[in-house]
C-alpha cells in the first residue's frame, strides 16, 4: 500500500520548477516571492546548483545518482519530476532547467529541432525493460501464452501515444499477432505508473509494466511475470540532453558524463534498467553521437 501511495504522490506532486537565483536582487526577490506564493521551501542559492528535469519513471535511480554526484563533486542537484510531455512543455515556455532526462527520444529530438537543447549533448542514459506482470501467481507464464487465452478480463498497458512503454507493449502485441484477441480487454494507463496501479490494485488481471516497477516493489514479485525478450520491441531508449538555457553548463556537462560512467551504469542496471552496449563505445569518442549511429 505504502509503495503505491508513494508512487501516486510522485505522479501528483509534479513539482513546480524552482528558479535558482544567483541573480540580481530584483530577480532574487521575485523568486523568493514566487517560492512563497507557490509554497516551495526555497533552498539557498549556490553557484552550482543544477536543476534537472526528470521523467517520472526514473525517480528512484535519479535520487540515488544525484546523491552520489553531490558526494563526489560538491554540486547540488535539484530534481524536478514530471511526465516528459509536461516537462517539455515547461522547457518550451522557459523553465530554467539545466538538464533534461526524457523518457523517450522524441522529446529530446524536438527540443534539438527548436534549438532549445545543445546539439551533440544528447545521449541514452537508460533503456527500459518491459515485463508482463500479474499480481496473481501462475497467471503469467514465461512465454506469454496467457495473452492468447481467456484467463483474464482486463489487461493494462500504457497509452502508446504518451508512454514509450506503451509503444513497446503494442509492438509486442502486434509481433504476437493478438491485437484482435486483446482489443476488448485492453485498458490504458496515461503513464506507466498508472498502468502499474491498475494491475497492482487487481482491477486489471495483468499488464505490461516496467521491470523497474516490479523490482522496486518487492511484494510484486509474489505475482507472476514474463520478462519480454529484447527483440520483441524496439529498445525503450531514454535520452538526456543539456538545455541551451542551462545556467551551469559545465556542471551540467559534468553530470551528463557522470551519468555515463561505468559505476553509474551499474547502479542504473540495479534499478531494473538496461543500457545498450554501444553507448560505451560512443563514450570514448565524444564527437561520435550514438543517436545517429542507429
Amino acid at each position: 500500500m505504502k509503495t503505491i501511495y508513494q508512487s501516486l504522490c510522485f505522479e501528483m506532486n509534479n513539482p513546480v520548477p524552482q528558479a535558482m537565483a544567483a541573480l540580481s536582487p530584483r530577480k532574487l526577490l521575485r523568486s523568493i516571492v514566487l517560492s512563497i506564493l507557490l509554497g516551495i521551501s526555497s533552498t539557498p542559492a549556490f553557484a552550482d546548483d543544477l536543476l534537472v528535469a526528470v521523467a517520472s519513471n526514473f525517480i528512484k535511480p535519479m535520487q540515488a545518482i544525484s546523491q552520489q554526484f553531490t558526494e563526489s563533486t560538491g554540486h547540488k542537484v535539484t530534481l524536478s519530476f514530471g511526465s516528459s510531455g509536461k516537462l517539455m512543455a515547461q522547457i518550451r515556455h522557459g523553465a530554467p532547467f539545466d538538464l533534461f532526462l526524457s523518457a523517450d527520444q522524441d522529446k529530446v529530438t524536438r527540443l534539438l529541432e527548436k534549438e532549445l537543447a545543445v546539439s551533440g549533448s544528447e545521449f541514452i542514459y537508460a533503456q527500459g525493460r518491459l515485463v508482463l506482470w500479474s499480481g496473481k501467481q501462475e497467471l503469467v507464464d514465461t512465454s506469454g501464452d496467457v495473452l492468447k487465452s481467456d484467463k483474464f478480463r482486463y489487461i493494462a498497458l500504457a497509452d502508446a501515444k504518451l508512454a514509450p512503454y506503451g509503444k513497446a507493449a503494442e509492438q509486442v502485441i502486434s509481433a504476437l499477432g493478438i491485437e484482435q484477441h486483446l482489443k476488448p480487454r485492453v485498458v490504458k494507463g496515461e503513464n506507466i505508473s498508472q498502468t502499474y496501479q491498475f494491475v497492482r490494485t487487481g482491477n486489471a488481471d495483468l499488464g505490461f509494466v516496467a521491470l523497474s516497477q516490479v523490482q522496486h516493489h518487492p511484494e510484486s514479485l509474489k505475482g507472476s511475470q514474463w520478462l519480454i525478450p529484447r527483440d520483441y520491441h524496439e529498445p525503450i531508449d531514454q535520452y538526456a540532453v543539456i538545455l541551451k538555457r542551462a545556467k551551469h553548463k559545465d556542471a551540467a556537462t559534468e553530470f551528463s558524463q557522470f551519468l555515463q560512467r561505468k559505476s553509474t551504469h551499474a547502479l542504473i542496471r540495479s534499478f531494473g534498467y538496461d543500457l545498450p552496449t554501444s553507448v560505451q563505445l560512443a563514450e570514448s569518442d565524444q564527437s561520435c553521437d550514438y543517436a545517429y549511429l542507429r
Binding site: L8, Q197, T201, N203
Partner: peptide, 18 residues
Amino acid sequence: LPPTVLGFYLLVLMGPEG
C-alpha cells in the same frame, strides 16, 4: 479531496479486493 486521490481510492474500493 483532490480528484486524483478520490479516483485512486475509488479504484481501490471498486476493485476486486475492495
